[in-house]
């Protein structure tokens, strides 16, 4: 009985599925925040610059709330500045080259992360559930920003539409793949343990149901069907496309 209570109070250090989830959430939030922050002085309007700064602050705050959880799995404190192998999307490896790349990441990557946190809203892992509820509440404004800017750029002329379409295409496959292949073993295990309430396909469907209607009404063609995703290039351990 004592052993059971102790085990329940402290997440097992050997819990690769849960640790992988926390790492990908933390690292993607961290780099999304860093990339947003780089545009605080380069956005196409003062208001957009302030919004970029606010969203950067939110994302880095969300990441900072995840990293203390690493101690449960590694036994030591982890700071993002000290990490050498991030479990973040390749889409966030380089600074955004244009405002349309900022908008594409805001619209696709930020939304994918939110869908995952929504799946943890009633998580059996208390520390994740508590953070997920706060994060989901704060992400509403990020979604509004991404959606509105997609619609804005799509109707701002042929050049803007083409730039936005290219930026969305560049990260489309990887972001859709981030939820894992069908029957992803780690996600399925987490769903079975009610850490998450959806499997990979359900997560991807929830994500697509959110972004596709906005793309459709903005006359942006779907860059790639789900049947064509390049799974042969997928790094399942770090949840990112291989180089």
């Amino acid at each position: 009985m004592v052993e059971t209570a102790a085990a329940a109070a402290t997440p097992a250090k050997a819990d690769p599925a849960l640790f992988a989830l926390i790492q990908t959430l933390a690292d993607n939030k961290y780099w999304l925040g860093r990339r947003y922050a780089e545009w605080c002085t380069a956005a196409p309007a003062l208001e957009a610059a302030v919004a970029a700064a606010a969203m950067a602050q939110d994302e880095i705050g969300h990441a900072r709330s995840q990293y203390p959880l690493f101690r449960d799995f590694t036994g030591q404190d982890v700071e993002p500045e000290g990490r050498t192998a991030f479990h973040s999307l390749r889409a966030l490896d380089e600074p955004f080259r244009s405002w349309s790349e900022f908008v594409a990441a805001n619209f696709l990557v930020d939304t994918a992360l939110t869908v995952m946190f929504e799946a943890a809203y009633d998580s059996s892992y208390d520390d994740l559930r508590n953070r997920a509820r706060r994060i989901v509440g704060e992400e509403g404004i990020h979604w509004l920003h991404g959606k509105a800017w997609v619609q804005r750029l799509a109707t701002a002329g042929a050049g803007s539409h083409r730039s936005l379409s290219d930026s969305l295409s560049r990260i489309w496959a990887e972001t859709a793949m981030w939820f894992g292949p069908e029957s992803d073993a780690e996600i399925e295990e987490l769903r079975r343990r009610t850490v998450l309430d959806r499997d990979s396909e359900q997560l991807r469907s929830a994500y697509l149901e959110r972004v596709l209607p906005v793309m459709d009404t903005s006359a942006i063609a779907t860059p790639m069907g789900m049947a064509d995703l390049p799974w042969d290039r997928w790094d399942g351990e770090r949840r990112r496309l291989k180089g």
Binding site: A43, P95, S163
Partner: peptide, 18 residues
Amino acid sequence: TSPAPTAKQQSSEAGGWI
């Protein structure tokens, strides 16, 4: 971690200032 492009660079790529 190189700096992001300037607003001028990005706006010209996007087809004009918004």
